[in-house]
Nucleic acid binder design. Structure first.
Lengths: 210, 210
DNA sequence: TCTACTTTGTTGTCAATGACAACATTGGCT
DNA sequence: AGCCAATGTTGTCATTGACAACAAAGTAGA
């Protein structure tokens, strides 16, 4: 047993890493600052020097989660497929991340939802939408998709995939497989955006627009 | 000060009601069994006689939430509109509920997600999908929607609306209004299901089906 | 090198919490 | 009346998050 030096040196990183492990194993409720301190062989007061309080630690975990997720999404956009293929791959990347890190995803969004979330966290979390919006705008210019506000359509795709990701992560897809739901979702969305909204349908949605 | 009778009489109902209020005001993390007992003027040990532990109370809250939500959804299906109109109304009903009870919705699904959720809770929570599935099947038979497995398509609609509901409840829709996102989502989904998935698109999704 | 000063970690303490056990009261049933 | 299960109370315990006082270690300037 070599006795520990007074200074841990990389306490912040060690805490973050261990916190992510704990969250993935036991959920956010299973995270205890004191247990965390024990896990990394440090006194129960030490974490406070790096994270003001428990929420600050959770925020940091969420931020790290968004960063690694954004990386996966960006990678997915760079495949050589056609527009629709890239669209599907981005959706799959998102859902795959969710399925592999279900508890982390919950933390990421419940944290972003928190009333006093940091600017950085919100920006990092919104990056996925921008990717979708760019793809949709590009497809519209290419004539592959019908006209329509890219911002709203991107939001539609985002919320749909987010729902898929959350329910897939929680195992709420009952009978249907994750793979089936993701492809069906992206296919349906793409088909809907390609077809556009017929005028007959718009009638009931434009009542208040005058 | 009339001294309280020894028996509260309706403790369980009182606890449930107050718990729902607390959750909507302060989220699940703001719920404390002891504070709850204080709120209804009862000793800190009393709640244990009605709910084995804190999770059991939360489960009961979630179940009540699903029941009132299902009522709203069923009501929405009984409007006299055409098929597409009813579809949109169901979506709106779901999202409206989420926006009005954001914290409750979070509890409902994080509870259903819990590994040892009760059979009753899971069944009650899945009811919304069955409604969607019935509507889609009916529309397919009427020739309004293209063919496709109603179960999978219902799941697609459900996850999409679920995502909309969650993000709307959390205020994550950034620029776009809730109303816009809901109508755009239901419109896009319906258009996609009406158009069906072109064979050219299916090519990339049927690679593993042989 | 000596000396402030800051950062990082430790120890001690506090109120709040969830869970549990022992006990008290109530109302129903025979 | 007398038993008994359901309901509520009181007391207690370990755990937790937060805070304050203190200690050690690195850092920068004389």
């Amino acid at each position: 047993m070599t006795d520990q030096p007074y200074h841990h040196g990389k306490l912040r990183e060690a805490l973050l890493e261990r916190a992510m492990e704990t969250i993935e194993e036991a959920g956010v409720d299973g995270l205890s600052l004191r247990q965390l301190a024990r896990d990394v062989n440090v006194s129960h007061g030490a974490p406070a020097k790096h994270f003001r309080d428990k929420q600050a630690l959770i925020d940091a975990v969420a931020l790290a989660g968004f960063q690694s997720m954004n990386r996966l999404i960006r990678d997915a956009t760079q495949s050589g497929d056609d527009l629709r293929g890239r669209f599907v791959r981005v959706g799959k990347a998102y859902v795959d991340f969710a399925v592999e890190h279900p508890a982390l995803l919950t933390v990421m969004y419940s944290t972003k939802h928190h009333p006093d979330s940091s600017e950085e966290l919100r920006n990092t979390g919104a990056q996925g939408i921008h990717v979708a919006q760019a793809m949709i705008a590009e497809a519209q210019e290419a004539g592959v998709l019908a006209d329509g506000d890219p911002g709203t359509l991107a939001m539609v795709c985002f919320v749909s995939l987010h729902g898929t990701a959350l329910l897939a992560a929680g195992g709420h897809l009952d009978g249907t497989s994750v793979e089936d739901v993701v492809t069906a979702t992206t296919d349906t969305l793409w088909a809907g955006m390609a077809a556009g909204v017929p005028a007959a349908q718009l009638a009931s949605t434009t009542q208040l627009s005058s």
